[in-house]
Write a protein that binds this DNA or RNA. Sequence first.
DNA 1: TCTGGGTGTAAAAAGATCGTAAAAATGGAG
DNA 2: CTCCATTTTTACGATCTTTTTACACCCAGA
Lengths: 230, 230
Amino acid sequence: MGAKILIVDDEPQIRKLLRVTLQAHGFTTIEAATGQDGIIQAGMIRPDLIILDLGLPDMDGTKALSQIREWSVVPIIVVTVRDDEEGKVYALDHGADDYVTKPFGMSELMARIRTALRHVANQPDEPVLKIGKLTIDLARRIVERDGQPVRLTPTEYDLLKTMATNAGRVMTHRQLFQQVWKGQNYETADHYLRVYIGHLRKKIEDNPAQPNLIITEPGVGYRLVIPSES
Amino acid sequence: MGAKILIVDDEPQIRKLLRVTLQAHGFTTIEAATGQDGIIQAGMIRPDLIILDLGLPDMDGTKALSQIREWSVVPIIVVTVRDDEEGKVYALDHGADDYVTKPFGMSELMARIRTALRHVANQPDEPVLKIGKLTIDLARRIVERDGQPVRLTPTEYDLLKTMATNAGRVMTHRQLFQQVWKGQNYETADHYLRVYIGHLRKKIEDNPAQPNLIITEPGVGYRLVIPSES
DNA sequence: TCTGGGTGTAAAAAGATCGTAAAAATGGAG
DNA sequence: CTCCATTTTTACGATCTTTTTACACCCAGA
């Protein structure tokens, strides 16, 4: 996942424990020992989640909570030794997204972090390749040319995909063949390629007879040019 | 505020306690004593939040949790006597938004309810999909075409649901089969698909012979097109 | 001008996949 | 047990892809 998590706690051993565990779960961690520093870091780094200890030396943790909430909706999980119900209610009503009492189980905290992150779940951007007037949406398996969808057969699509993911680079006959016709022995290979390159050109080139997208490198292979070149 | 809250708990005295307290705070309450009834109520009433006891007589509470999560993003606060960490992690990772252990303080629960409601306050997520002239109400399990209800068998519905929740995207044969025929081995799979895609087309396409909703991507799978495309 | 490797189109044959109807099996309700 | 809706299986023709075959091309170099 790799979300950035800001740890605001004055006890070094707690910070270390959190840091190690979080990093073991694939998160990136930033640390702050004081409320003041925590607020600054929250503004600078823009973490995806904040773990906030209420028992800070320089200021009341709830103060830090309120200050961060003035401009940010980042999920904040409050972690504290105080177990009084009043404190929980206060923190939750002042913007905390969860409240965990020390000592807490690490796996529970991790689950609560996942839950909090889920609330702001904006699914990661889909990989969309853009090469000139060509758009290739790998997740949706959609190819568009000037916004118009282009119908491709599986082999055509695979071929275009491998060239697009290596756009600007020359792909040798052998490389293309092995990527598209997986695990078949190289026989009439470059003839297949010629046929399918032909199909592709007919479908995505303005003028298939004079291709300016799929360039042939004689004796070597083919190359999908990226727009800056002509 | 007046949010509707569904209470799913088999103990009448707990339900009463929750009902009285919640109503005192201005909430509207609905009650269910069993998991089965809870799931039905969740679909019928569309509560703004659900309080779910895991210790239900008729079914495992986590089962109910998962079922509701299939079509709804309503906040669910799990309330239970079980205090084991494993259970907490499991529930949180399966869609619960919070986990409170009995006995709990009422004011804390109220604060956690307010926090949970805050999360969905600014993202009204209707569990109703609209794709062209097709309307799919995931909560009520109702499909309409031009306002006319469409009768679907369970398998047909599951198939349409998985395609609709991934509208615009190509679903491979394998993906569709695993979603709809859960945990069966891939054998005559794509044949089942052909048959059921045929059924669906007959029921939702204007002209089943020339489908413009469920289009087949030969060699790959099927795609439910979203209206902007033709 | 002829020759030959590498290349580009077209269209055929071969092969795989797809759509439909309808029969057989399954399973739940009464 | 019987009925009925649904699912699974069977069968076959239609359609789409891939592979194969055929031939024209361009451009060196002899």
